[in-house]
Amino acid sequence: MATQSESRPQCSVVVPAFQGKHLIRACIVAVLKATEGYNSEILVVESSGDGTSELLAALYPAVIVLTSPLQLSAGQARNLGIQQARGEFLFCVDLDCVVPPDLISCPNLPVGIPTVHGGMPVNL
């Protein structure tokens, strides 16, 4: 995980979270595994006040939690996270998804070309 004082992260992962306290752990564990060995940052945008922020702070202190006092749609939360993301590459993952461990090292990701990639969620 990159800290604010470190250089620009290679990748940022944005996770919108609304009432995700009971689902987000599996997502974060998978994202941590997928970003292992990379200078990365994980940003979770939480707007429900259900304790997700506190849970993440206790279990995953390197995860950046952005909270909103207003309820945000998934799109609004993604946009807020994207605005704060500093990585060269950007990944958006929904809180009920478990990404594959090779997500970032996938050889089919073109370099230098702006692209959007989707994924298939694993239902929790």
Rank of each mutant, 00 (worst) to 15 (best):
D94W: 05
L80G: 12
F18E: 11
D94M: 14
Q83I: 13
I42Q: 02
N123H: 15
P110K: 13
V63M: 04
S5A: 10
R78D: 14
C106E: 15
A85N: 00
Y60P: 01
S105G: 11
V93Y: 01
S47R: 07
N79M: 15
C97H: 13
G87C: 05
G119H: 01
V99E: 06
L109N: 04
Q4K: 12
A30H: 05
P107D: 14
A34W: 00
M1H: 09
P107Q: 13
C106H: 15
L80S: 14
V63D: 04
A57S: 13
V15P: 05
E41S: 01
V29A: 12
T35K: 00
G112H: 06
F89S: 10
I24Y: 04
V15R: 00
P121T: 07
G37V: 02
A62L: 04
G81K: 05
Q4A: 15
A34R: 07
A17I: 00
G112K: 10
G119S: 05
S73Q: 15
S73H: 14
Q83W: 14
L56P: 01
T3K: 12
E88N: 08
Y38I: 09
F18G: 12
I113G: 10
S53V: 11
L55K: 11
V63E: 04
F89L: 12
V14W: 06
H117Q: 13
P61I: 04
A58C: 07
T67W: 09
C11Q: 12
P69I: 05
T3E: 09
P16S: 11
F91C: 00
N79A: 15
T115R: 10
E41H: 00
S7K: 15
D102T: 06
A85V: 05
G112S: 08
T52L: 07
R25M: 06
Y60D: 01
K33F: 04
C106K: 13
C27Y: 02
L70G: 11
V13R: 02
E41R: 06
G49L: 08
R78G: 11
I42M: 06
V31A: 02
S12M: 00
Y60I: 01
A30Y: 06
A26S: 10
G81P: 02
D94P: 08
L32C: 03
K33W: 04
P16Q: 03
L66C: 06
A77L: 12
G75S: 15
A2E: 05
D102P: 01
L72D: 05
A85K: 03
G75W: 14
L43N: 02
K21I: 03
F91D: 00
S47K: 08
R86M: 08
D102H: 09
G75V: 14
P110E: 09
D96F: 11
R25S: 04
L70P: 02
M120Q: 15
L124N: 09
S105F: 09
V31Q: 06
P61R: 03
P100G: 03
N79L: 15
G81I: 06
S48T: 02
G49R: 04
T52W: 03
L90N: 07
L80C: 13
